[in-house]
Amino acid sequence: MKGQAPGCRVHTPASLAGALELLAAEKGVWRPLAGGTDLMVPFAAGKLPFMDFLNLWGLEELRGLEISEDAITLGALSTYSEIRNHSLLQREFPNLVQSAWVTGAIAIQNRGTLGGNLANGSPAADTPPSLLTYGAEVQLQSIAGSRWVPYENFHTGYKQTVMLPEELITRIRIRRPKGNNFHFFRKVGTRKAQAIAKVCVAAYARVEEGRVVEFRLGLGSVAPVPVRARTVELMVEGCVVDTLLIAAARTALMEDIRPIDDIRSTAKYRRTVAANVLGQLLEEMVEHFDRMA
Protein backbone atom coordinates (compact mmCIF):
# COMPACT_ATOMS: atom_id res chain seq x y z
CA MET A 1 0.00 0.00 0.00
CA LYS A 2 0.98 3.56 -0.49
CA GLY A 3 1.46 6.38 1.90
CA GLN A 4 -0.71 8.38 4.17
CA ALA A 5 0.29 11.85 5.10
CA PRO A 6 1.45 11.57 8.72
CA GLY A 7 0.94 15.30 9.20
CA CYS A 8 -2.73 15.27 8.32
CA ARG A 9 -5.40 16.31 10.80
CA VAL A 10 -8.93 15.11 11.37
CA HIS A 11 -11.33 17.33 13.27
CA THR A 12 -14.59 15.89 14.50
CA PRO A 13 -17.03 18.69 15.34
CA ALA A 14 -19.65 18.15 18.03
CA SER A 15 -22.38 19.81 16.01
CA LEU A 16 -23.23 21.21 12.62
CA ALA A 17 -22.76 24.69 14.03
CA GLY A 18 -19.29 23.74 15.19
CA ALA A 19 -18.45 22.41 11.75
CA LEU A 20 -19.67 25.58 10.05
CA GLU A 21 -17.77 27.79 12.49
CA LEU A 22 -14.54 26.01 11.75
CA LEU A 23 -15.11 26.19 8.00
CA ALA A 24 -15.70 29.93 8.29
CA ALA A 25 -12.81 30.57 10.63
CA GLU A 26 -10.23 28.69 8.59
CA LYS A 27 -11.51 29.13 5.07
CA GLY A 28 -10.29 26.59 2.55
CA VAL A 29 -8.28 24.64 5.10
CA TRP A 30 -10.72 21.90 6.05
CA ARG A 31 -12.01 19.35 3.61
CA PRO A 32 -15.41 17.90 4.55
CA LEU A 33 -15.31 14.13 4.89
CA ALA A 34 -18.53 12.09 4.92
CA GLY A 35 -18.48 8.29 4.43
CA GLY A 36 -15.02 8.31 2.90
CA THR A 37 -15.82 6.05 -0.04
CA ASP A 38 -14.60 8.58 -2.60
CA LEU A 39 -11.95 10.49 -0.69
CA MET A 40 -10.15 7.58 0.92
CA VAL A 41 -9.01 6.14 -2.40
CA PRO A 42 -6.92 9.10 -3.61
CA PHE A 43 -5.99 9.85 -0.01
CA ALA A 44 -4.39 6.44 0.56
CA ALA A 45 -2.68 6.70 -2.81
CA GLY A 46 -1.10 9.96 -1.70
CA LYS A 47 -2.89 11.87 -4.44
CA LEU A 48 -4.87 14.39 -2.38
CA PRO A 49 -3.51 17.92 -2.26
CA PHE A 50 -5.04 18.69 1.12
CA MET A 51 -4.24 17.39 4.57
CA ASP A 52 -6.99 18.49 6.93
CA PHE A 53 -10.30 16.77 7.17
CA LEU A 54 -13.54 17.81 8.79
CA ASN A 55 -15.24 14.62 9.87
CA LEU A 56 -18.99 15.00 9.35
CA TRP A 57 -19.90 11.34 9.88
CA GLY A 58 -21.23 11.85 13.43
CA LEU A 59 -23.45 14.87 12.70
CA GLU A 60 -27.00 13.71 13.36
CA GLU A 61 -28.34 17.01 11.96
CA LEU A 62 -27.29 15.78 8.52
CA ARG A 63 -29.17 12.52 8.70
CA GLY A 64 -32.77 11.53 8.34
CA LEU A 65 -35.55 12.04 5.89
CA GLU A 66 -38.45 14.48 6.05
CA ILE A 67 -41.66 13.93 4.16
CA SER A 68 -43.99 16.74 3.22
CA GLU A 69 -46.88 16.81 0.85
CA ASP A 70 -44.84 18.06 -2.09
CA ALA A 71 -41.33 16.96 -1.39
CA ILE A 72 -38.96 14.61 0.33
CA THR A 73 -35.93 16.11 2.03
CA LEU A 74 -32.95 13.87 2.59
CA GLY A 75 -30.15 14.63 5.00
CA ALA A 76 -26.82 14.96 3.23
CA LEU A 77 -25.46 11.96 5.10
CA SER A 78 -28.21 9.65 3.85
CA THR A 79 -26.42 6.53 2.71
CA TYR A 80 -27.14 4.60 -0.45
CA SER A 81 -28.34 1.71 1.71
CA GLU A 82 -30.84 3.96 3.47
CA ILE A 83 -32.10 5.19 0.11
CA ARG A 84 -32.15 1.71 -1.38
CA ASN A 85 -34.21 0.32 1.49
CA HIS A 86 -36.69 3.16 2.00
CA SER A 87 -40.17 2.05 1.00
CA LEU A 88 -41.54 5.50 0.15
CA LEU A 89 -38.51 6.23 -2.03
CA GLN A 90 -38.91 2.83 -3.66
CA ARG A 91 -42.50 3.70 -4.51
CA GLU A 92 -42.14 7.27 -5.64
CA PHE A 93 -38.52 7.72 -6.71
CA PRO A 94 -37.52 4.50 -8.45
CA ASN A 95 -34.73 6.22 -10.37
CA LEU A 96 -33.04 7.36 -7.18
CA VAL A 97 -33.45 3.97 -5.56
CA GLN A 98 -32.04 2.20 -8.61
CA SER A 99 -29.09 4.53 -8.78
CA ALA A 100 -28.35 3.75 -5.13
CA TRP A 101 -28.58 0.01 -5.91
CA VAL A 102 -26.00 0.23 -8.66
CA THR A 103 -23.49 2.38 -6.80
CA GLY A 104 -20.58 0.12 -5.83
CA ALA A 105 -21.92 -2.79 -3.79
CA ILE A 106 -23.29 -3.29 -0.28
CA ALA A 107 -20.22 -2.25 1.68
CA ILE A 108 -19.93 0.96 -0.34
CA GLN A 109 -23.68 1.58 -0.09
CA ASN A 110 -23.45 1.34 3.70
CA ARG A 111 -20.96 4.21 3.83
CA GLY A 112 -21.35 6.33 0.73
CA THR A 113 -23.64 9.33 1.17
CA LEU A 114 -25.79 11.36 -1.16
CA GLY A 115 -24.22 14.62 -0.06
CA GLY A 116 -20.74 13.22 -0.46
CA ASN A 117 -21.59 11.95 -3.92
CA LEU A 118 -22.64 15.46 -5.00
CA ALA A 119 -19.76 17.26 -3.37
CA ASN A 120 -17.27 14.89 -4.94
CA GLY A 121 -18.57 16.13 -8.28
CA SER A 122 -17.78 13.14 -10.43
CA PRO A 123 -19.56 13.23 -13.80
CA ALA A 124 -19.71 9.43 -13.63
CA ALA A 125 -21.61 9.26 -10.34
CA ASP A 126 -24.84 7.31 -10.46
CA THR A 127 -27.24 9.38 -8.37
CA PRO A 128 -26.96 12.73 -10.23
CA PRO A 129 -28.89 11.70 -13.36
CA SER A 130 -31.70 10.50 -11.10
CA LEU A 131 -31.67 13.66 -9.03
CA LEU A 132 -31.87 15.71 -12.21
CA THR A 133 -35.05 13.90 -13.18
CA TYR A 134 -36.67 14.76 -9.86
CA GLY A 135 -35.90 18.46 -9.94
CA ALA A 136 -33.62 18.16 -6.94
CA GLU A 137 -32.46 21.13 -4.93
CA VAL A 138 -29.44 21.25 -2.71
CA GLN A 139 -29.31 23.14 0.57
CA LEU A 140 -25.97 24.77 1.25
CA GLN A 141 -25.34 26.13 4.69
CA SER A 142 -22.70 28.33 6.25
CA ILE A 143 -22.65 30.29 9.48
CA ALA A 144 -24.12 33.19 7.51
CA GLY A 145 -27.21 31.16 6.67
CA SER A 146 -28.44 28.74 4.12
CA ARG A 147 -29.50 28.77 0.50
CA TRP A 148 -31.24 26.31 -1.79
CA VAL A 149 -29.58 25.74 -5.17
CA PRO A 150 -31.29 23.89 -8.00
CA TYR A 151 -29.20 20.76 -8.45
CA GLU A 152 -28.97 21.33 -12.18
CA ASN A 153 -26.94 24.48 -11.44
CA PHE A 154 -24.81 22.85 -8.75
CA HIS A 155 -21.93 21.61 -10.90
CA THR A 156 -20.03 24.32 -12.74
CA GLY A 157 -17.29 22.30 -14.40
CA TYR A 158 -15.34 19.07 -14.04
CA LYS A 159 -15.29 18.42 -10.30
CA GLN A 160 -16.28 22.07 -9.70
CA THR A 161 -19.38 23.18 -7.83
CA VAL A 162 -21.08 26.37 -6.69
CA MET A 163 -20.19 25.59 -3.08
CA LEU A 164 -18.22 28.21 -1.20
CA PRO A 165 -15.35 27.01 0.99
CA GLU A 166 -17.33 27.81 4.13
CA GLU A 167 -20.43 25.92 3.00
CA LEU A 168 -21.63 22.39 3.58
CA ILE A 169 -24.32 20.43 1.81
CA THR A 170 -26.94 19.85 4.47
CA ARG A 171 -30.03 18.59 2.65
CA ILE A 172 -31.22 17.43 -0.73
CA ARG A 173 -34.88 17.99 -1.64
CA ILE A 174 -36.73 16.17 -4.37
CA ARG A 175 -40.26 16.88 -5.56
CA ARG A 176 -42.80 14.12 -5.21
CA PRO A 177 -44.06 12.99 -8.59
CA LYS A 178 -47.70 13.65 -9.28
CA GLY A 179 -50.24 12.41 -11.75
CA ASN A 180 -49.62 9.98 -14.54
CA ASN A 181 -45.90 9.50 -14.66
CA PHE A 182 -43.07 7.37 -16.01
CA HIS A 183 -39.60 6.74 -14.63
CA PHE A 184 -36.59 5.30 -16.39
CA PHE A 185 -33.09 4.55 -15.19
CA ARG A 186 -30.34 2.64 -16.94
CA LYS A 187 -26.69 2.54 -16.08
CA VAL A 188 -24.42 1.13 -18.74
CA GLY A 189 -21.42 0.31 -16.62
CA THR A 190 -18.23 -1.61 -16.98
CA ARG A 191 -19.88 -4.54 -15.15
CA LYS A 192 -22.93 -5.34 -13.04
CA ALA A 193 -21.61 -4.24 -9.66
CA GLN A 194 -18.56 -2.31 -8.46
CA ALA A 195 -18.78 -0.51 -11.77
CA ILE A 196 -18.26 2.99 -13.00
CA ALA A 197 -20.82 4.20 -15.51
CA LYS A 198 -19.81 4.55 -19.14
CA VAL A 199 -23.22 6.03 -19.83
CA CYS A 200 -26.00 6.61 -17.36
CA VAL A 201 -29.49 7.73 -18.41
CA ALA A 202 -32.43 8.66 -16.20
CA ALA A 203 -35.75 10.15 -17.18
CA TYR A 204 -39.01 11.28 -15.66
CA ALA A 205 -42.10 12.10 -17.64
CA ARG A 206 -45.63 13.19 -16.79
CA VAL A 207 -48.55 13.04 -19.15
CA GLU A 208 -51.84 14.88 -19.11
CA GLU A 209 -54.51 14.07 -21.65
CA GLY A 210 -52.12 12.18 -23.87
CA ARG A 211 -49.61 15.00 -24.00
CA VAL A 212 -46.19 15.06 -22.32
CA VAL A 213 -46.38 18.00 -19.92
CA GLU A 214 -43.16 17.35 -18.08
CA PHE A 215 -40.03 15.58 -19.28
CA ARG A 216 -36.70 15.58 -17.56
CA LEU A 217 -33.72 13.69 -18.90
CA GLY A 218 -30.51 13.37 -16.89
CA LEU A 219 -27.28 11.82 -18.10
CA GLY A 220 -24.00 10.85 -16.52
CA SER A 221 -20.53 10.15 -17.95
CA VAL A 222 -21.25 12.04 -21.15
CA ALA A 223 -19.98 15.52 -20.25
CA PRO A 224 -17.68 17.15 -17.67
CA VAL A 225 -20.69 17.32 -15.33
CA PRO A 226 -23.94 15.40 -14.98
CA VAL A 227 -26.24 17.00 -17.53
CA ARG A 228 -29.87 17.63 -18.25
CA ALA A 229 -30.56 17.12 -21.92
CA ARG A 230 -32.41 20.39 -22.52
CA THR A 231 -32.67 20.10 -26.28
CA VAL A 232 -34.31 16.71 -26.07
CA GLU A 233 -36.54 17.80 -23.19
CA LEU A 234 -37.85 20.78 -25.20
CA MET A 235 -38.50 18.53 -28.13
CA VAL A 236 -40.44 16.00 -26.14
CA GLU A 237 -42.37 18.34 -23.85
CA GLY A 238 -45.72 19.28 -25.29
CA CYS A 239 -45.76 16.37 -27.72
CA VAL A 240 -48.67 14.02 -28.01
CA VAL A 241 -47.23 10.73 -26.76
CA ASP A 242 -48.08 8.76 -29.86
CA THR A 243 -46.42 11.26 -32.17
CA LEU A 244 -43.02 11.33 -30.50
CA LEU A 245 -40.20 11.50 -33.04
CA ILE A 246 -37.69 9.16 -31.55
CA ALA A 247 -35.10 9.44 -34.31
CA ALA A 248 -35.17 13.22 -34.08
CA ALA A 249 -34.78 13.06 -30.31
CA ARG A 250 -31.75 10.84 -30.70
CA THR A 251 -30.19 13.33 -33.06
CA ALA A 252 -31.06 16.23 -30.77
CA LEU A 253 -29.34 14.49 -27.87
CA MET A 254 -25.99 15.11 -29.57
CA GLU A 255 -26.51 18.83 -28.82
CA ASP A 256 -26.72 18.06 -25.12
CA ILE A 257 -23.75 15.79 -24.52
CA ARG A 258 -19.99 16.12 -24.96
CA PRO A 259 -18.47 12.74 -24.16
CA ILE A 260 -14.76 12.00 -24.23
CA ASP A 261 -12.42 9.04 -24.72
CA ASP A 262 -10.95 7.72 -21.49
CA ILE A 263 -9.61 4.44 -20.10
CA ARG A 264 -13.13 3.11 -19.59
CA SER A 265 -14.70 3.79 -22.96
CA THR A 266 -14.75 5.97 -26.04
CA ALA A 267 -16.61 9.14 -26.95
CA LYS A 268 -18.12 7.34 -29.90
CA TYR A 269 -19.44 4.52 -27.75
CA ARG A 270 -20.92 6.97 -25.26
CA ARG A 271 -22.65 8.94 -28.00
CA THR A 272 -23.99 5.85 -29.74
CA VAL A 273 -25.16 4.17 -26.57
CA ALA A 274 -26.64 7.32 -25.06
CA ALA A 275 -28.72 7.69 -28.22
CA ASN A 276 -29.70 4.02 -28.22
CA VAL A 277 -30.74 4.09 -24.57
CA LEU A 278 -32.70 7.29 -25.20
CA GLY A 279 -34.46 5.39 -27.98
CA GLN A 280 -35.17 2.56 -25.59
CA LEU A 281 -36.55 4.88 -22.95
CA LEU A 282 -38.80 6.75 -25.35
CA GLU A 283 -40.16 3.49 -26.71
CA GLU A 284 -40.81 2.21 -23.22
CA MET A 285 -42.39 5.52 -22.29
CA VAL A 286 -44.78 5.43 -25.22
CA GLU A 287 -45.68 1.85 -24.38
CA HIS A 288 -46.19 2.76 -20.74
CA PHE A 289 -48.54 5.63 -21.42
CA ASP A 290 -50.36 3.70 -24.11
CA ARG A 291 -51.00 0.99 -21.57
CA MET A 292 -52.20 3.52 -19.03
CA ALA A 293 -54.54 5.21 -21.52
Binding site: T12, L33, G35, G36, T37, M40, N55, A107, I108, R111
Partner: peptide, 10 residues
Protein backbone atom coordinates in the same frame (compact mmCIF):
# COMPACT_ATOMS: atom_id res chain seq x y z
CA UNK B 1 -17.92 -1.86 5.35
CA UNK B 2 -14.68 -1.83 3.39
CA UNK B 3 -12.20 -1.07 6.14
CA UNK B 4 -9.73 0.37 3.60
CA UNK B 5 -12.21 3.20 2.95
CA UNK B 6 -13.10 3.98 6.56
CA UNK B 7 -11.07 6.65 8.29
CA UNK B 8 -10.14 5.22 11.69
CA UNK B 9 -11.42 8.44 13.29
CA UNK B 10 -14.93 7.48 12.19
Amino acid sequence: VNSCLVPAAQ
